[in-house]
Amino acid sequence: MQDAAPGAKVNAGRFLRARVPRSGPGPALLSPPHRCRTRAVEAVEYQLMDEAEDGLWWYRALHARVLDVLDPRRAGEPVLDAGCGTGGFLMRLRQARPDRRAVGLEFNPEAAARARAKAGVHVAVGSVNAVPFADSAFGGVVSLDVLCHTAAEPDRALAEFRRVLRPGGLLVLNLPAFQWLYSAHDIRVHTKQRFTAEGVRALLAAAGFSEIRTRYWNSLLFPLMVLQRKVLARGGDSPSDVSLPPPWLNRSLHAATGLERRAAAAGLRFPAGGSVLATAVRA
Rank of each mutant, 00 (worst) to 15 (best):
V20C: 15
Q179E: 15
R35Y: 14
T214F: 01
G83V: 07
R229Q: 06
L220A: 03
T38M: 06
A206R: 15
D145R: 07
N129V: 08
H254T: 00
S183A: 15
R35Q: 13
K118A: 06
E198F: 02
N174W: 04
V226H: 01
E106M: 05
L224F: 09
W248N: 00
D186S: 09
R114V: 11
P72E: 04
R60N: 12
V141F: 12
Q193R: 14
P27I: 09
R73Y: 06
E110W: 09
C84Q: 06
A205Q: 07
P21R: 10
L80S: 07
L30T: 04
V226C: 02
V276T: 05
S127Q: 06
V20K: 10
W180Q: 08
D54E: 12
Y216N: 01
F161E: 05
G13I: 05
G139F: 01
G236D: 14
V131E: 07
G104H: 09
V10G: 02
G139K: 02
Q2Y: 13
G168H: 04
M91L: 10
M91A: 14
L204S: 00
A117D: 10
E51N: 05
R162L: 13
R74C: 10
L277A: 02
L48P: 00
V66I: 13
A134C: 13
A280K: 02
R101V: 14
N129F: 12
P6D: 06
H149G: 11
A52P: 00
Q179W: 11
L173Q: 05
R163P: 11
R156G: 09
A265F: 11
V125Q: 14
F133A: 10
V226Q: 02
H149K: 01
F178W: 11
L158N: 10
H122C: 01
G126S: 07
V146S: 13
R269H: 07
R261V: 00
A152N: 11
L171C: 12
H190V: 15
A255Q: 05
T38V: 14
P154D: 09
R163E: 13
R163F: 15
R35A: 14
T86M: 02
V164D: 08
R60K: 09
R60V: 08
G85I: 05
Q228G: 14
L90I: 09
A207C: 09
P176V: 02
L227C: 05
D71F: 01
H254M: 03
A207I: 04
D54G: 15
R19Y: 15
G13V: 00
L16S: 14
L165K: 03
F209R: 03
L268M: 13
L204T: 03
M225W: 07
S219P: 01
R194L: 14
R37I: 01
M49D: 11
P176N: 02
G55H: 04
V20Y: 15
S238N: 10
P176I: 03
A52G: 03
L268Q: 03
A184I: 06
V41W: 06
L158A: 07
G83P: 10
M91K: 07
E110Y: 13
A255H: 04
R213C: 00
L221K: 01
L224V: 02
